[in-house]
Design a protein around this nucleic acid. Sequence first.
DNA 1: ACAAAATGTAAAGTTTATTTGTCATATTGG
DNA 2: CCAATATGACAAATAAACTTTACATTTTGT
Lengths: 66, 66
Amino acid sequence: MKNNIKVQRAIFNLTQQDLAEKIGVSRQTINALEAGKYVPSTVLALKLSRLFGKNVNEIFDLEEGD
Amino acid sequence: MKNNIKVQRAIFNLTQQDLAEKIGVSRQTINALEAGKYVPSTVLALKLSRLFGKNVNEIFDLEEGD
DNA sequence: ACAAAATGTAAAGTTTATTTGTCATATTGG
DNA sequence: CCAATATGACAAATAAACTTTACATTTTGT
């Protein structure tokens, strides 16, 4: 699972903290997501989708192992 | 979290079993998803998206509580 | 009507997401 | 340069996803 949360976040000029608060998760969750440490739930993906005005598919992408 | 997996599955004329195998999860997982028992991971959502040829956003939708 | 296939459901167990707390390092602004 | 802010990272704990097994009910085809 790849994602471009970091890029989207840059576009909106938000800190990890800011984003975490807007989405309703912890800052560590955002950090770990950006670091590719794990895969979010679909609720979280949809919230990011809504916030960034992009389809989930434009933010997240499957990789070989998935 | 709402989803229309059941409808997509009907369009492709697949049983829950069929779908489960194509996606790589158990039949009960598909059943529980259709029943709205829980929210899938984004990997699972993307696999369904790919299989059905629809954006994740066209298959899944946020609800009040989410 | 009968048998087979499909679906609903539920408990117990394993794995993975997410939180909370904490500390170290980098980056930015005055 | 100094202080504040932002990021990276880790460990322990909790919550939620997902599996396996198993059985009951419904639907479908002949």
